[in-house]
Design a protein around this nucleic acid. Structure first.
Lengths: 149, 149
DNA sequence: CTGCCATACGTACCATGATACGGAGTCAAG
DNA sequence: CTTGACTCCGTATCATGGTACGTATGGCAG
């Protein structure tokens, strides 16, 4: 078992070196101390586990910030399972909202495509027409929420 | 119906002034020439229509870059309705892909939540177990952590 | 004429999740 | 001892869609 330098840790976790460093900079993983007598930092197995935790969380749609919260919950002996469950449930609701919005978009697109003649002059195109005219709710300057997930 | 300055155009289109300028910088709308004898730029009605076009496109999930393409199609007399339709169809497929991914995430979250006892010690939490990376094996024996993030 | 608000413009900054680069130091094999 | 691979560190860049700030000037009401 050779000493685990950053490159090996990265390969073990299936990410790039820069990704490890990025997580360190952002407090998601701890940077091991630099050996007193100069040399390379040695990464514990835990780092690899932690990185995998992060990637798993991303797979479930958690942002890095939310994953950081989960990680600090994990580190806190007072954390109850219900804390984690609450977060998963909140995320589920978030996902449901996104699904609803996307479904709406899908329906609108499908409707437009169905109505479009599919050939001929642009002025007859119902898709362009929809983009031109239909004034929806004015959508105040500050209203946002999309995020590709 | 006085001269339309940027602020009025922005209000008419339902966006902020900075948003108009942002669209100008990015070539989505054209910046009107500055009056010869000093003064404020005057925005034509078309700017307002164009901004609304952009917002409608965003509502349908098009990125600004894609909307810019739609706008230049619109400006090109050789554009056929089928060009537009093809893009809408591609976007529909994109939306379907996102829906599929989100649906998968949803299912995974729901499954985790169902399996989670909902209270008790963290080490028994199946959600944390899943994040740990034990993809087939929930419930990893034990792990110890401290370190406050 | 004097405020005051609006405009013009350039630049910097926000969040998100990385990726890339350059120069110096370190380590291990040959 | 040299070479090549790897590490360290700071900084810059990417894409996305804006928001904010500072300074100078324009235009209009009082």
């Amino acid at each position: 078992m050779s000493t685990m330098t950053i490159g090996k840790a990265a390969r073990a976790a299936g990410v790039g070196i820069e990704t490890i460093r990025f997580y360190e900079r952002n407090g998601l993983i701890e940077q091991p101390p630099k050996p007193a007598c100069g040399g390379f930092r040695v990464y514990p197995e835990d780092t690899v586990r932690r990185v995998r935790f992060i990637r798993q969380g991303q797979e479930l749609g958690f942002s890095l910030r939310q994953i950081a919260e989960l990680l600090s919950l994990k580190a806190d002996p007072a954390t109850d399972c219900s804390d984690v469950r609450r977060r998963a449930q909140a995320k589920l609701e978030e996902v449901d909202e996104k699904l609803a919005r996307l479904t709406g978009i899908r329906a609108a697109l499908e409707e437009l495509i169905a109505a479009c003649p599919g050939r001929g002059a642009l002025r007859a195109c119902s898709i362009m027409g929809a983009l031109e005219g239909a004034e929806g709710a004015p959508m105040s300057p500050r209203q946002k929420e999309e995020k590709t997930l």
